[in-house]
Amino acid sequence: MMRLLIEPITPAEPGYIALKTESLTHHFNMLRRLEESWLRGENQFNAPGEKLLGAFLNGRLVGICGLNRDPFSQLPRAGRIRHLYISKAWRRAGIGKQLLTTVMADASIWFDFLNTHAPQAAHGFYHKMGFVPVIGESRVTHRLFCSV
């Protein structure tokens, strides 16, 4: 039986390097950028309402997702889904949905809406999760309005 556990992580997590390496082979740079900004101290998901979570399947890191205050928005209650990546072997197994749902669980306490800048391959996923397409904002492809 598969056991999924979602909990806070950092790029120092065992298994992070393997997941980052996999993401790079599939031409996704989000985990490389996450690690670099973490190590520079620019983004460590430690402001109020922020979090970085990992999805562990039978103890193995298979997914990552973060929530930050949106650094590209002038609005103080704008959140941003960051660095969502699920291991290719585990996509379409519901892990991304569970991980994103957990990341967003209490977002309305801190944020009025959540932005993301998703690659084309993830547009359908975000649509199914209730995000709406955004046109005309260079760093936003989708937005979800938070309800209390």
Rank of each mutant, 00 (worst) to 15 (best):
Pro76His: 05
Glu42His: 07
Leu84Lys: 02
Ser147Ile: 12
Ile6Lys: 14
Pro11Phe: 11
Ile6Pro: 13
Arg33Pro: 00
Ala55Met: 04
Ser87Phe: 03
Val134Ala: 08
Phe113Leu: 05
Met129Tyr: 03
Leu5Cys: 09
Asn46Pro: 03
Leu53Ser: 04
Asn29Gln: 14
Thr116Ser: 04
Arg3Asp: 09
Gly130Tyr: 09
Met129Cys: 13
Thr21Trp: 01
Glu50Met: 03
Glu42Pro: 09
Asn46Glu: 06
His26Gln: 15
Val140Pro: 04
Val62Thr: 09
Lys20Gly: 01
Gln98His: 13
Phe131Val: 12
Thr141Trp: 06
Met129Ser: 06
Ile95Cys: 05
Thr116Pro: 00
Lys97Leu: 03
Ser73His: 06
Phe28Val: 14
Phe111Arg: 08
Glu7Cys: 11
Gly41Glu: 03
Glu36Pro: 01
Arg69Gly: 00
Arg77Thr: 09
Ile81Cys: 12
Leu61Val: 11
Ser23His: 10
Phe45Arg: 04
Asp106Cys: 03
Thr102Gln: 15
Asn115His: 15
Met2Ala: 08
Pro8Thr: 11
Arg80Leu: 10
Ile17Thr: 15
Gly63Ser: 09
Ser87Asn: 11
Arg77Ala: 06
Leu5Ala: 14
Gln44Phe: 01
Lys20Leu: 15
Gly49Pro: 00
Pro8Phe: 14
Thr10Lys: 10
Arg60Met: 10
Asn115Cys: 11
Val148Glu: 09
Gly94Glu: 05
His123Lys: 05
Gly96Asp: 04
Glu35Val: 02
Phe145Ser: 12
Met30Thr: 10
Ala18Asn: 13
Phe56Asn: 07
Glu13Trp: 07
Arg77Phe: 06
Lys51Gly: 01
Ser108Phe: 14
Leu75Lys: 09
